[in-house]
Design a protein around this nucleic acid. Structure first.
Length: 499
RNA sequence: GCCGCGUUCGUCUAGCUGGCCCAGGACAUCAGGUUUUCAUCCUGAAGAUCAGGGGUUCGAAUCCCCUACGCGGUACCA
C-alpha cells in the first residue's frame, strides 16, 4: 500500500512549487491506489503565521487535490499537526542517545557563533561534526556527572554520525547519491526549547504514519543522508526517496520566489494572500482568472512529461500516465506563456453555462444583474478571445453599456466626411427589417455597400466604432442582435454627435 | 570555501539499454490563409554544431574522464 504525504510549514502562503510537489504526490498516490496525507510541520513556533494552514487547505480544495488523511480530514494517525504531537518526539531522541546514535550538546548559540567567526577569519567554515565534536562542550567530552548537571539547564541533542562511512541515498529520480559521513555536520535533532527539529519530527512521523515514499523538493537532497541514517539508527525501514527538480524563475536563474511574481506580473501562489503582519497582498492564480485544471496541467508538465507528445491532460489522464521515472533531473523555468495558453485552451473546453456562472459573479460585483441566459450568450460571443476568466468584462463591456470613448486612431483612419450620411442609411436598413433578423440585415447592408460602390471595411469599421468604441470584438450583426436595434440606433446617433 | 545535484531550439521537453537524430513535439516568434475589425482558428517557416574538451567505438546527444558554468545545501528554519 502506497502512502505519501505533503508536509508544509505554515509560514506563509503556499508557494506554487509546493503545489507541484503536492500534485506529484497526489498523482502518485492515486495511480497506485494509495493514500495521500497532509501533515502540518510547525515545529518552529517562531515562524508560525496565522491563516497559513487554512490557506493551504483551501488551495488544494480549489485545485481539486484531495487528501485521504490530514489535519483537516483526520485519519488513523491523528493528530496531523506536529505542534500537537510534541509529546511523542522526546522519547525518540532519548532512544537515539541510549543507542549511541546521538549525544547531548551544551554549547550556547554564542559559543557556536564565536567558533564560526574564528573559522571565518581563517577562511574556513566551522562545522559541528565528527572532527570537531571532541573539542566541544557535550556529553562526549564531559564526564557523566558533569553531563547530568548540565542537563538541568539548556541542551540540545545532536546526531552522531559514524566515522568515515559512505552513506547512500537511493533516489528514484537521481539514482544512487553517496556522501562520506566525515563531511556531514552533527545536526541538531532536539532543540533547547524542548521541541524537535524538522529532521527528527519528519522521520518519526513518516515512520509512524507508515509513509512508503517521500516525494519532496530538491532542496532536501542535502539532508537526505541524515534521514537515511536516522532510519538506520531507529532500525526502521526507510521509505523510498524522490527529490523533485526546482521551479526556477522565468528569467535568469535561481529558485522562483515571491518577488519574481511581483516583478514579472504573474502569481506565485495558488490563491490571493494578504500578509497578516504587513497587510501586503500577493496575487493568486484563482483571482487572476486561471482555471484549476489548467494550473494542474501546466504544473504537472513542469518537470515531468508522459514520454509521448501528449500535453493536454485531465487529472484522470495525469494520474494514469504519471511516473517518477519520467520526472526530469534539472530545474524547470516557469513558462508564463505556456500557462496562459493552457488556460485559454481550458476555457474553450468549459461549458458556457459554467463560464456564465463565473462571469455572473464578476458582473454582480459591478452591480450588473442580467439574466443568466443573457450572460451565457455573451460568453458564447466572446469566449474564444478570453485567456483568463477575468477577461470577460474587458471583452464584452460594450454589450452591457454604450462606449464612453472612441479609439482616436480608428477614428482618424476610418471616420470620413461622408460617414454620418452612410450610417444614416444603415439606420434606415436596420429599422426597415422588422422583426430584426441578423442575416437579412447583414445581407442588406452588404448589398447597400456594393450597390453604391462603397468601401466595405470603412463602413463596417465605422459602424463598429459607434457600437464598440474600437475596432475589435465579435461579429457586428451578432452585437446588434444582442443589444437590439433601438440601442444600436442610439449609439450610432451618439457617435455622429461625439466624433 | 566545502559538499551535493544538474547542463538538448528563447522556454517546457522527446531522445532511457549507442546507428531509424545532419535531433522530434508544444509554447513563444515570423509568414501566409480564414474574417467587415480585433482576436480565435488553420497551414507553413525559422529556430539546438545536443555546455566545452578529451577518450571508447566502424558509429555517441546517448558510454567513460576532465573542465566550465548554473543551482541547491552548508541554522537550536523548514
Amino acid at each position: 500500500m502506497v502512502r505519501v504525504r505533503f508536509a508544509p510549514s505554515p509560514t506563509g502562503p503556499l508557494h506554487i512549487g509546493g503545489v507541484r510537489t503536492c500534485l506529484y504526490n497526489y498523482l502518485f498516490a492515486k495511480q497506485h491506489g494509495g493514500a495521500l496525507l497532509l501533515r502540518i510541520e510547525d515545529t518552529d513556533q517562531t515562524r508560525f503565521v496565522p491563516g497559513a494552514e487554512e490557506y493551504i487547505v483551501e488551495s488544494f480544495k480549489w485545485l481539486g487535490i484531495t487528501f485521504d488523511e490530514g489535519v483537516h480530514v483526520g485519519g488513523k494517525h491523528v493528530p496531523y499537526k506536529q505542534s500537537e504531537r510534541m509529546h511523542i518526539y522526546k522519547k525518540y531522541a532519548d532512544e537515539l542517545i541510549e543507542k549511541g546514535w546521538a549525544y547531548y550538546a551544551f554549547d550556547t548559540p554564542e559559543d557556536l557563533e564565536t567558533k564560526r567567526k574564528e573559522a571565518e577569519a581563517e577562511k574556513k567554515t566551522f562545522q559541528y561534526d565528527v572532527n570537531t565534536r571532541n573539542t566541544m562542550c557535550n556529553s562526549l567530552t564531559l564526564s557523566p556527572e558533569e553531563t547530568a548537571e548540565k542537563l538541568q539547564g539548556n541542551y540540545v541533542v545532536r546526531f552522531k554520525y559514524p566515522e568515515n562511512t559512505e552513506i547512500h541515498v537511493r533516489d528514484l529520480i537521481r539514482g544512487d547519491v553517496k556522501i562520506n559521513s566525515q563531511l556531514l555536520d552533527d545536526k541538531v535533532l532536539f532543540k533547547s526549547d524542548g521541541l524537535p527539529t524538522y529532521h527528527l519530527a519528519n522521520v518519526v512521523d513518516d515512520h509512524l504514519m507508515e509513509i512508503t515514499h517521500v516525494i519532496r523538493g530538491e532542496e532536501w537532497l542535502p539532508s537526505a543522508p541524515l534521514h537515511v541514517m536516522l532510519y538506520k539508527a531507529f532500525e526502521w525501514q526507510a521509505p523510498q526517496f524522490a527529490h523533485l527538480p526546482l521551479l526556477l524563475k522565468p528569467d535568469g536563474n535561481g529558485k522562483l520566489s515571491k518577488r519574481d511574481g511581483d516583478r514579472l506580473g504573474f502569481p506565485v501562489f495558488p490563491l490571493q494572500w494578504k500578509d497578516p503582519n504587513t497587510g501586503e497582498i500577493s496575487s493568486g492564480y484563482r483571482e487572476s482568472g486561471y482555471l484549476p485544471e489548467a494550473v494542474n496541467n501546466f504544473l504537472a508538465l513542469l518537470g515531468w512529461n508522459p514520454g509521448t507528445e501528449e500535453e493536454v491532460m485531465s487529472m484522470e489522464q495525469l494520474i494514469a500516465r504519471f511516473s517518477l521515472e519520467k520526472v526530469s533531473k534539472s530545474g524547470a523555468k516557469f513558462d508564463l506563456d505556456k500557462a496562459k495558453w493552457f488556460n485559454h485552451y481550458y476555457i474553450q473546453q468549459k461549458p458556457n453555462t459554467v463560464l456564465a456562472e463565473i462571469f455572473a459573479q464578476q458582473l454582480a460585483e459591478k452591480n450588473i444583474h442580467p439574466d443568466i441566459e443573457k450572460i451565457e450568450k455573451v460568453v458564447a460571443l466572446v469566449k474564444e478571445r478570453v485567456y483568463f476568466t477575468t477577461d470577460f468584462w474587458n471583452q464584452s463591456a460594450f454589450l452591457f453599456q454604450a462606449p464612453e470613448t472612441y479609439n482616436p486612431e480608428v477614428v482618424k483612419k476610418r471616420w470620413k466626411e461622408d460617414t454620418p450620411l452612410q450610417l444614416k442609411q444603415v439606420i434606415e436598413i436596420l429599422t426597415s427589417v422588422s422583426p430584426f433578423d441578423k442575416i437579412v440585415v447583414h445581407d442588406k447592408v452588404v448589398a447597400f455597400i456594393q450597390e453604391n460602390q462603397l468601401n466595405m471595411g470603412q463602413i463596417m469599421n465605422c459602424l463598429r466604432l459607434a457600437l464598440v468604441g474600437d475596432s475589435k470584438g465579435p461579429d457586428l450583426f451578432e452585437i446588434i442582435d444582442f443589444i437590439g436595434v433601438g440601442e444600436t440606433v442610439r449609439r450610432i446617433e451618439r457617435a455622429m454627435e461625439e466624433i
